[in-house]
């Protein structure tokens, strides 16, 4: 069996488990059944195993960490998000419900990835640098924390609204108090802000070493900066103007949409991302000066 076949089997298995997990999480919320959520988490673990195996297989096949091309990029981001979720819910079981958002997002990413080209492409030499490794690592971490923060925000918005009505879904009721959710949200936003900052800084160092410029107002760079500024703004609004609770949650959801757009939407909108500008003059010189006239 070829490496590609193994990967596709692994990734489709992961999609299947993510789908099962998503159904369980949503069913848990609709039918107010706690065991469904527990099984949903088990499905998240089950999805993580083939996803990791497939990713390792790709790594071995290409000889580099999978970060090149739509197939590899989506797959590695999906892995990062799922890994982040698995770790977070292990450390804080109260956050298990975040799987309701994480699993469908991961399922979509893996699903899109398996349907894109699996062709192995040569990576330009400038991409073989440890700065790029740092850049990618922190991008994955920021992405994971952004999803969790968005999930917490949605949970906060639902729970606080239901509390006002006086009827709270038992599953949401099992979550910690809304103040606690809000505080966790704040911590994940702060974490995302720092991770995005390191991602941008390491990307700048890499660009400077490769091309002599650390910033070029390139669409991807600028949208990453905009995402970072929005998270900075959320933090400052919280500490200066007391924007907590619903307002902070709405902002976090908005920031999540922005980050998704920055990561995956920009390449669709702008065709020439991260392309080095070309000079078009000074391309001919004669042997005898005077523009080559004999």
């Amino acid at each position: 069996m070829t490496s590609i076949k193994i990967q596709l089997i692994m990734f489709w298995a992961s999609v299947g488990f993510c789908f099962g997990g998503t159904v369980l999480f949503i069913s848990g919320l609709i039918f107010k059944r706690e065991p469904f959520v527990k099984y949903g988490t088990v499905f998240a673990y089950l999805a993580f195993i083939p996803l990791t195996a497939g990713l390792i297989n790709r790594w071995v096949q290409t000889g580099h960490f999978p970060y090149w091309g739509v197939y590899e990029v989506l797959m590695s981001y999906a892995w990062g998000a799922l890994f982040f979720y698995v770790v977070v819910q292990f450390l804080k079981p109260g956050l298990r419900i975040a799987g309701t958002l994480v699993l469908p997002v991961v399922m979509l990413m893996v699903g899109i990835a398996v349907m894109s080209s699996v062709e192995m492409k040569e990576i330009p030499r400038t991409f073989f640098t440890y700065w790029l490794g740092i850049h990618i690592l922190f991008a994955k971490l920021s992405y994971g924390s952004v999803i969790i923060s968005a999930a917490l925000s949605i949970a906060y918005l639902f729970k606080s609204k239901q509390q006002k009505r006086g009827v709270v879904n038992p599953l949401l009721a099992r979550l910690p108090q809304v103040e606690k959710i809000d505080n966790w949200n704040y911590q994940f936003i702060a974490f995302a802000f720092v991770m995005l900052g390191i991602m941008i800084a390491s990307g700048a160092v890499w660009a400077y070493k490769a091309w002599g410029r650390y910033w070029g107002w390139d669409p991807i760079e600028t949208w990453a900066l905009i995402s970072w500024l929005i998270y900075g703004l959320i933090l400052h609004l919280r500490v200066t103007m007391g924007w907590r609770g619903r307002r902070a949650s709405w902002l976090a959801v908005f920031a999540f949409i922005l980050v998704i757009f920055s990561f995956f939407g920009i390449p669709l909108v702008y065709p020439s991302i991260h392309e080095h500008l070309k000079y078009t003059v000074g391309l001919s010189r004669g042997l005898f000066g005077n523009g080559g006239q004999a």
């Binding site: 001919s284 010189r285 042997l287 005898f288 080559g292």
Partner: peptide
Amino acid sequence: MIYKGFIF
């Protein structure tokens, strides 16, 4: 000779 030169 009308022209002689390296053309980039």
